[in-house]
Design a protein around this nucleic acid. Structure first.
Lengths: 245, 245
DNA sequence: TGTACATCAGTGAACGCGCGTTCACTGATGTAC
DNA sequence: TGTACATCAGTGAACGCGCGTTCACTGATGTAC
């Protein structure tokens, strides 16, 4: 406990500080736009700098390297989908579980359609040589846990899954116990779920992202064209499968 | 009908022809290796040429541009997974549907683990500015149709899905009719499936690729580590869900 | 079977380009006394 | 309130690099007669 602890004065912001966060945000905004235009691997510090109106070396005052800029965008993207999903969840009646399921899943799809390259950034091929740092873990988990909370509300009502779950291998039980233990208290309800329910939830999350990626990446060309109808239909099926009424 | 039709002599191969297909294959092999090392966006004609031992401009005798080389790799990759899936399907007893399901799905996963960058090439973020040409459609469809054939065998036995399917929107029915009509005769069995079964099949395919991508792209870090056990468990659940016994 | 011509694989130099990152610098803003 | 010093944003030049593609060329292979 040294003096540093007392030294935080989080409010008093100098002009320099304000300018700094403003420029930081502008860089990220421009970078996001360029990402949307050309994809992650085409993101270049130089062209971002050009568009922001500064010399390329100046960007290094804000981000130590291109990868750090990418990381910031990834973290932002996770927060963005997470926020969208939570807002959608809160916008419908808490006890209408089917409505919550449909609201959350379709909000995630909407976000992805609106920001395809940000979706690709977090759910597509990882950028070669890039390793996601720890900061990305917490925000990455918002959407799946939001889905699990809905399942938890269903479980709390005593609803059962529609088919008898097969016995779960011990190895998986162990992992799931660890997973539960690692959850922050804000996700308490989700951590009360049975192993089978958690596995079903992860699967549903995988389906959600899989469907969106298929749509965005063009794997449904010549298969399904009315994506909206298809998506909603399948999500209702999954909801039935999950026992959400 | 002009003379050109008579002029095919598919067997008589000159030394030049043989050399040509050999060099073409060598270029693709090297490109595939570089893909595996650095990812699709890092694939460079020049470095491929360097490794093959020719000057960069010489590659243009074989592929008119970098994109065409990429297309060739994509087509190859689709054929590769397709072949693996079909071989796995044939390797087990045709009437053991659960075994076929598990064999096909786990062979697809194995292939992806063995060739992660080829998986990324076809199922990851599309290469920016790159548009898949028609040649990629047929091979792309082998894996999902192999899965549907298993469902078809199950349906032929009179097995029903485990939950009553909800009514299918007309828009989807129309699309599915078109899909069925577009299938080549070699997939005849699959085209006899009911709408609900086809939708379930597409969903299962989405789940399969989604799970593999999640594993490969690292979205299960800190969630599930024993991927093999997890995968098999979930695939068995899905098989149950699909009514495969 | 031999010759004349056409085809084609591969060369090497060049084009114009953009990239990430480093560095010594200037000048404005902030801080301690 | 005023001064002296420290911090920091932004500049501009430079480094070394690799890229895709074009072009005129050489020399070997294939084809027609």
């Amino acid at each position: 406990m040294d003096q540093v602890m007392h030294d935080q004065r989080p409010k008093l912001r100098t002009a320099r500080d304000r300018a700094r966060t403003e420029v930081t945000n502008e860089i990220k905004t421009v970078a996001r736009r360029q990402l949307a235009a050309a994809g992650a691997s085409a993101l270049s510090l130089r062209s971002v700098a050009r568009e922001v109106g500064m010399v390329s070396s100046a960007v290094y005052r804000y981000f130590p390297s291109r990868d750090d800029l990418l990381t910031a965008l990834i973290v932002d993207a996770y927060h963005a989908v997470g926020a969208v999903a939570q807002a959608a969840d809160r916008a419908v009646a808490a006890d209408d579980l089917l409505a919550r399921w449909l609201a959350v899943t379709s909000s995630v799809r909407r976000w992805a359609l609106d920001s395809p390259h940000e979706h690709g950034l977090i759910f597509g091929t990882p950028v070669p040589g890039y390793l996601a740092p720890v900061d990305t873990i917490d925000p990455a988990v918002i959407v799946p846990l939001t889905l699990l909370q809905i399942l938890a509300a269903s479980a709390a009502r005593g609803a059962a899954v529609s088919w008898a779950p097969r016995p779960i291998p011990t190895a998986l039980e162990v992992e799931l116990a660890g997973l539960r233990a690692g959850l922050s208290p804000s996700w308490a309800e989700a951590s009360m779920l049975s192993d089978a329910a958690i596995l079903q939830g992860i699967m549903a999350w995988t389906q959600l992202i899989g469907m969106i990626s298929f749509e965005l990446f063009g794997h449904l060309h010549n298969v399904i064209e009315d994506h909206e109808t298809y998506f909603t239909h399948q999500m209702r099926n999954i909801a039935t499968d999950l026992g959400l009424s």
